[in-house]
Design a binder for these strands. Structure first.
Length: 486
RNA sequence: GGGCCGGUAGCUCAGCUGGUAGAGCAACGGCCUUUUAAGCCGUUGGUCGCAGGUUCGACCCCUGCCCGGCUCACCA
């Protein structure tokens, strides 16, 4: 292939020309003429100029067929020696490789078999491939190569491309939905002096000029609520967050989250909004609200099941009721479940662990689990009638957490207490406990209206909608260990 | 981090408890004016993930390492 490149150059053909004018994208043409079988009408449309990557090539002596593909579609091209010239046909066209990017000019027609085809008057090499594409029939199967060289995966595996089209669509629909409800999109720091808003270990980096450490955000939460204090009382941010933790089919160190905050709303309101938003997204993408995920049916038709955290433990997890209000029994049960209970501080945390072990993977259909223990929810507002619980819900689907929401704690004194409690847990060895953020307390002292906020894991949502088994399948370039130089 | 599985030609895969590596596609040369996994004839292509070891002999057995997948642990 490199030799051909040289030969082309010697013939005076630039294998990487700077520009080529196209009249249409391939999909436009395919779409416009998909019902048109009248050769006369195709002919009278005039000449088109299309460009794309050559995906197949069938040489038949003096004539050839090939397919070219761009982002929007694929079309057959037909090249005759007697039209493009014997010299060009022999020395240039026949030397092209599958994978080359070419431009073609010619009229449209239908072949004997009825396929819409460009009858090429002119073929131009636009970019020469120097490496063969993965095999056309089996595609690229090797999962590692698909992640490391995603471009090859995208060229060759239509399914993979479709996943990322769906991803783009989901993100667009979320934006449209929130904007239509009066939310304003904002951008807050990804590099934060105090990483807040979630229980997770952060990545650390250093700013030279200021000579300070900064942390990649684990969540935008505290900044967004500062904006609500500032009067942006419906805001959202959609973007990357970073957590310095394990990698699995459900976790990538950098992942995409949308967080939104709505003043004068509580967590009940957000349940409704979430149901409405997600079910409408599923419907827009699939046409219906029932989808198949990895062989099981998921029904997103509202209303969704709602079950309190305690109910879930007892009714779904099969946990004895006595455990719920008896820390000692809870710890005993946790031990039986092989949970390492010694490093866990509070009753609520123990219950949280038991929940994960006994309930989580049983929640297949979209389910809101609500009213969580206070001590695993340091930013959520207490329930008015039960000081041990907070107004918080998580949306569980297919055994995973998809969203987390609560009525925001807007009492600065209570918030300060909660931070202090987190500091004690941090001192006791919990690296994921929240840090004190004095400036955030000050913001609250200026008055955060009653507000509800939510975060939705976009990657996980896309996994469901696109029927992808691993988070790596919905992230274009998932985090991998770099290959070492030989 | 533990367990299990995998890494053989550019791609997809074979390779028998050990005898010196094979197919299809791609590539290269040729034939072919309606093909679409085009066809036909011919040719080329490999440090078998890396490094050691055992053996007369290792893709195969052993040890260590690298990369990946699943899973458990950890973890939104």
């Amino acid at each position: 292939m490199r030799e051909k490149l040289e030969k082309f150059r010697q013939m005076g053909i630039n294998p990487y020309p700077n520009r080529y004018k196209i009249t249409h994208r391939i999909g436009e043409i395919v779409d416009r003429f998909k019902e048109e079988y009248d050769q006369q009408k195709l002919e009278s449309f005039g000449e088109v100029s299309l460009a794309g990557r050559m995906m197949s090539l069938r040489l038949h002596g003096k004539i050839s067929f090939a397919h070219i593909k761009d982002q929007t579609g694929k079309i057959q091209i037909f090249v005759q020696r007697d039209v493009v010239g014997a010299d060009f046909y022999r020395n240039v066209f026949k030397k092209l490789d599958v994978g080359d990017i070419i431009g073609v000019k010619g009229h449209l027609f239908r072949t004997k078999t009825g396929e819409l085809t460009v009858n090429c008057k002119e073929v131009t090499l636009l970019s020469k491939v120097l490496r063969p594409l993965p095999e056309k029939w089996h595609g690229l199967r090797d999962i590692e190569t698909r992640y490391r060289q995603r471009y090859l995966d995208l060229i060759v595996n239509e399914d993979s491309r479709r996943v990322f089209e769906i991803r783009s669509e989901v993100i667009r629909l979320i934006r449209e939905y929130l904007v239509s409800k009066g939310f304003v999109e904002v951008e807050t720091p990804m590099m934060q002096p105090i990483p807040g808003g979630a229980a997770a270990r952060p990545f650390v980096t250093h700013h030279n000029a200021l000579d300070i450490d900064l942390y990649l955000r684990i969540a935008p939460e505290l900044y967004l609520k500062r904006l609500v204090v500032g009067g942006f009382d419906r805001v959202f941010e959609l973007g990357k967050c970073f957590r310095n933790e394990g990698i699995s089919s459900m976790h990538n160190p950098e992942f995409t989250m949308v967080e939104f905050y709505m003043a004068y709303a509580d967590y009940r309101d957000l349940m409704e909004l979430t149901e409405d938003m997600i079910s409408s997204i599923v419907k827009k993408i699939h046409g219906i609200t029932k989808i198949t995920y990895q062989g099981q049916e998921l029904d997103f038709t509202p209303p969704w099941r709602k079950v309190s955290f305690y109910e879930a433990l007892v009714e779904i997890g099969g946990v004895p009721e006595s455990v719920i209000h008896d820390e000692k029994r809870a710890r005993e049960l946790a031990k039986d479940l092989e949970i390492d209970v010694d490093t866990i501080q509070s009753h609520g945390k123990v219950l949280g662990e038991i929940f994960e072990k006994t309930v989580e993977d049983k929640l297949i259909q979209p389910t809101f689990v609500y009213d969580y223990p206070k001590d695993i929810s340091p930013l959520a507002k207490s329930k008015e009638d039960d000081p041990d619980l907070v107004e918080r819900f998580e949306l569980m689907v297919a055994g995973r957490e998809i969203a987390n929401a609560y009525t925001e704690l807007n009492d600065p004194l209570d918030q300060k207490e909660r931070f202090l409690q987190q500091l004690r847990e941090r001192a006791a060895g919990d690296e994921e406990a929240h840090r004190m953020d004095e400036d955030y307390i000050v913001a609250l002292e200026y008055g955060l209206p009653p507000t509800a906020g939510e975060g939705i894991g976009i990657d996980r949502l896309v996994m469901l909608v696109a029927d992808a088994p691993s988070i790596r399948d919905v992230i274009l370039f998932p985090t991998l260990r770099p290959e070492r130089d030989e």
